[in-house]
Design a protein around this nucleic acid. Structure first.
Lengths: 128, 128, 128, 128
DNA sequence: GTGGTCTAGACCACC
DNA sequence: GTGGTCTAGACCACG
């Protein structure tokens, strides 16, 4: 897996990395059991402090996306969301509203927005 | 316009205020030319530091959402985004991908996500 | 609230602190809205690096036990577990089995164990 | 005795093995004098480094759970805890408090917790 | 070799 | 003042 970090913006590096892993999992480019680069490897290739990588991995582990095994490496965990349905629904609705606000603000029509969303949807790996 | 700030969350107050203005514009509750409360008025009614309000308004002005006319007050700006079409498209696609990543991660099916988005869409004020 | 850290054992300091907060909440000695010592205060009084305190607080925030508000401090969050019932049950049963294994191993009788548990239970703040 | 190791979790393998021995003793499935598989046998059948098995056995021997007799094998030791009563009591109370903290935190009522503990208790082999 | 913890000290955003 | 992020580099536990 290829990573990219952008130090010029304001998004923390560890969060950029975490998002990229989450997205790769959502798109099916990373599957359960796959191994990620080690903390040290990735810190070298991205020229970033190892602690920063470790922080990204730790966060993902707490979310249940990764399992880290000292001495072995870091692996994609089997799926299975632990959050309650109402909590998950509330969370996703907030994200949707925030997206739609941005779309209106950026002057897209309803139809344009629908088409774009539909296009991107087919790029993701949905539950069967 | 009524504002609400929640000091118990983690979202900075100035950003809560800015979001509420953006959302009100997106939903059509604020129209170009409408006047917003002055920095001092709002800081009193929300019991918040005036700098915090000023920061929210400054951000919105930089985005082109507001115009401040010294001595007169702060007004909703006419639309007409400064950003070019490709830039706006790139930005909205990033937001869509981020939303869909979260949806997959929260274990929603494609169909559930479509339904939720469609539901929320009808709450917004789209360009004609 | 008073904290104690023991650097001679193998339990990480940040986890000792987090446990003490969790326990204080469970016993009702800390209630929603209560403020905890700031990262810097506590790091001085415990003679521990500020990062270590921050890590404990970050973990608790992610669990939903605390809310941190930059510029204001760290506060006990309102309750409300987000985990699914089966997940919570599985987790607590693991803890019970581990406790009972230890009790047998330490040569307590079933009755002694029951009495001790009953005694400690009355020290905690249970949901009504 | 059958062992199981789960390399996908975060618990060290040597500790998984040690726990399984302790639990088997606690439940009466292993009795004093019973022989355990040799380090080499077990390391082969579990496909695990022999050092890992040795570490588990060493820990158990230090705790007084096992006796290893070089050339003969490893055996369950007779009971008779080396720890004094007050020490053992202090230790078990810490474990109880930690369990109850978790139970409150996971939003179980006092009664639910009592029922679960009682249920699990009947699965263990208590001293007569 | 792997990840986990901790320190020292810097800089930033927020109020 | 508050918490949040990042770096540099040390030491430990695990396999």
């Amino acid at each position: 897996m290829e990573f990219e970090v952008n130090t010029s913006g304001r998004e923390p590096i560890y969060r950029q990395i975490a998002s990229q892993v989450r997205e790769a999992v959502a798109r099916g480019r990373l599957a359960p059991g796959d191994r990620l680069p080690s903390v040290r490897e990735l810190s070298k290739s991205l020229v970033v402090n190892p602690n920063t990588i470790a922080r990204a991995y730790t966060d993902l582990e707490r979310e249940g996306v990764l399992n880290s095994r000292p001495g072995l490496g870091v692996f994609i965990a089997p799926p299975g969301s632990e959050l309650t349905r109402p909590v998950r629904k509330k969370r996703i609705i907030e994200r949707i509203d925030s997206l739609l606000t941005e779309a209106v603000h950026l002057d897209f029509t309803r139809h344009e927005t629908q088409v774009l969303i539909e296009e991107r949807m087919s790029q993701f790996q949905w539950k069967v």
